[in-house]
Simulated scan of single mutants.
Amino acid sequence: MNLTHKQIVELHGFNNLTKSLSFNMYDICYTRTTKEREAYLNYIDEVYNADRLTKILTHVTEIIGANILNVAKQDYIPQGASVTILVSEGPVDETPVEAFEESPGPIPGSVIAQLDKSHITVHTYPESHPDDGISTFRADVDVSTCGEISPLKALNYLIHSFETDVMTIDYKVRGFTRDVTGHKLFIDHDINSIQNYIPEEIQELYDMIDVNVYQENIFHTKCKLKQFDLNNYLFHHKKEELTAEEQAIITDRLKLEMDEIFYGKNIYDGVN
């Protein structure tokens, strides 16, 4: 049975390794009034409702070669949605070499894999600042697979499925499996960065930082859009409708929001 594209190792029974991908995306918007803020949150709830999210996760199951066992979905009041899909696939004779190569996955496609006891979930979190006009939308997607293939193959599709200003991506291989001699294997494929699964055209759009703990098979990548166009962040109006001073203030607020999310801390309080 293939464990990497470089070696063949015969396992004792099923591959019990669990690979977990956590994909967190943030969309940031400036809403000038309470009415605009409510309209933005309603727009997000409509675009990323439970039905739309179910379609996205269904494509993810196709990409990783899984079968859907059960779907649970919910639209919340006043906002937000969740979808959980339990997935499984029985043993296959051979997993393709492509399943172990560090390369972007399809948009979408399918990869044959051996999967069991696996799940895919998404939760959304629309929210807004109490008084400075900033509104944000966060979606958390978790893909956990038990078997040979990495859920990182679905990452390319997930990036294309959301409008993303900031992304944080975590990948962890947990547990162990055994070869026929009883020797434990704590990872079954080569990886040195999540970025290897992100296509070059996407990497060119983002500033990216890796924080990896190789000895623990923990990989973390965070990404922030390089280019900033104020018109992309104004809801229902254009920057030409604003004074130069208003444009500067709003730009500073938006960039501060993105920086704080990217670095995971409050840079400073009391910004105008």
Rank of each mutant, 00 (worst) to 15 (best):
37 R>K: 15
94 E>V: 09
221 T>H: 08
238 K>L: 12
144 S>G: 02
42 N>T: 12
98 E>D: 13
38 E>V: 00
104 P>N: 05
141 V>M: 05
47 V>C: 04
198 I>L: 13
225 L>C: 08
74 Q>F: 10
225 L>M: 09
164 T>K: 10
120 I>S: 07
6 K>Y: 06
223 C>M: 15
204 E>Q: 13
211 V>G: 04
24 N>C: 04
51 D>M: 00
241 E>Q: 15
253 R>L: 15
262 F>G: 14
37 R>H: 03
164 T>D: 07
204 E>G: 05
190 D>W: 14
80 G>D: 04
172 K>L: 15
14 F>S: 07
242 L>A: 04
247 Q>D: 01
135 S>G: 12
136 T>R: 14
244 A>L: 05
249 I>D: 00
81 A>Y: 07
93 D>C: 00
183 H>D: 08
197 Y>W: 10
198 I>M: 14
177 T>M: 11
237 H>T: 12
111 V>W: 04
84 T>S: 07
225 L>D: 01
218 I>Y: 15
170 D>L: 08
205 L>K: 15
221 T>K: 08
43 Y>G: 03
207 D>A: 07
238 K>G: 05
19 K>W: 01
267 I>F: 14
133 G>D: 04
148 E>C: 05
15 N>W: 12
271 V>H: 15
157 Y>Q: 09
187 I>N: 13
229 D>W: 06
41 L>F: 05
74 Q>E: 08
22 S>N: 13
246 E>N: 01
164 T>A: 15
99 A>P: 00
10 E>Q: 11
240 E>W: 06
190 D>H: 08
80 G>N: 02
130 P>A: 05
92 V>T: 11
104 P>H: 09
204 E>S: 05
89 E>M: 04
207 D>H: 14
9 V>S: 09
25 M>H: 06
79 Q>L: 02
213 V>A: 13
72 A>W: 00
115 L>V: 00
255 K>R: 14
121 T>F: 06
34 T>W: 02
86 L>N: 12
63 I>G: 00
103 S>D: 02
262 F>L: 04
90 G>P: 02
95 T>L: 12
57 L>F: 04
143 V>P: 01
183 H>V: 04
30 Y>R: 07
64 I>L: 07
172 K>M: 10
100 F>I: 00
79 Q>G: 10
83 V>K: 07
16 N>D: 12
26 Y>H: 14
161 S>Y: 05
257 E>G: 11
65 G>E: 06
248 A>W: 03
67 N>K: 12
111 V>M: 10
134 I>R: 13
199 P>S: 01
139 A>M: 07
262 F>K: 10
174 R>M: 15
52 R>Y: 14
155 L>E: 03
32 R>E: 15
267 I>H: 12
129 H>I: 05
103 S>I: 13
247 Q>Y: 00
140 D>T: 15
236 H>F: 15
205 L>V: 08
269 D>F: 09
33 T>S: 15
258 M>G: 10
212 N>Q: 08
61 T>L: 06
219 F>L: 11
56 I>C: 03
106 P>W: 01
270 G>I: 11
128 S>N: 12
58 T>N: 09
64 I>A: 04
206 Y>V: 00
135 S>Y: 07
40 Y>H: 14
26 Y>R: 12
164 T>W: 13
27 D>V: 05
30 Y>V: 02
140 D>G: 01
253 R>G: 02
